[in-house]
Amino acid sequence: MSRLRYIAKRVALSVPVVWLGTTMTWAIIYLGPIDPATRLLSEGQTQNPAAYEAARTQLGLDQPPLQHYFDWMGSLLTFDLGQTWLLYQGSDVNALILDFLPRTLWLGFWSVLIAVCIGVPLGFYAGMRSNTASDYVASMGGIVWRAMPNFWLGIMLLAVLGSSQAIFGFDWQSLWIELDALTGSPDLSRLHTVEGFLAATKKVLPAAIVLGSASMGNEMRIGRTAVLEVRNEDYVDLARAKGVSERALVWKHIFRNALIPLVPIITSEAFLLIGGSVLVETVFSINGIGLLFFNAATQGDLPLVGTLMYVFILLIVGVNLLQDVLYTVIDPRVGLEGA
């Protein structure tokens, strides 16, 4: 029962976090040095007082700040996000998000999966064979891989894939499933068909590898030290003395415990993924929510920036809650220590 209480407590604690994050966003945008209304207007219209006033009224900026704050928070809470001003002018923000978000989630899903499926086993492998040549190669690889900037890695990967015929002897673009172009958004409308699924996957694969690169390096490193540490625990020796076979020792006693420190790493990478999505989506021209955010910011659609930030905050807090749930599943000590 106390596990449920623990989770309930985490949920309760995340409410002020969302509130604080959103409030800060509001303050930056509406109390900051830029008047969001002017930024929405074109060069000519800024001189036109009537147009300016109209924009202010529509943004609710003619109200006292506090009133505006409550209105704004209220509409976010009810997902009454209104319409866009500049980008995709006049379209429904909800619809816009629903259109762009899935592509980012699809990209994020694959990058987490690839990072976990490569990073964790590699780290465990290096940890089990610590101080051998293969350990050094894997560890060095992980460290360097982690230090590479995503945007640069993306560019390099695209260059390599673009001339894959010359380098590897096969053409990536036409391998297995023909792609219309190396970059661009995946087509998510045909996910339910096998071919559509594969095509959409192949399309985001390079981007997902790049986006997951930092996480992969992290997971490898943590996985390695975790295995090393668990391997030297008394309970592993005791299990060995008990006669547990090497296989069971590794899978039941070592890996299970080594997973615990990996949980916060995998989830804290949500930060990296969402932040990195801006750059990766730019490099790979994927029309995701990261790119949308970036365009909104650079083109001055500040109301949209605020709304999107709210969506990101919800995503991050959601992932954190997921981490807590995972924790209670994997580590029996959580929530029982009265923490």
Partner: peptide, 13 residues
């Protein structure tokens, strides 16, 4: 074998 520190001798999970 029985080790010194019982809290480390049992697998916590």
């Amino acid at each position: 074998i029985v080790f010194q520190d019982p809290t480390n001798s049992l697998n916590p999970v």
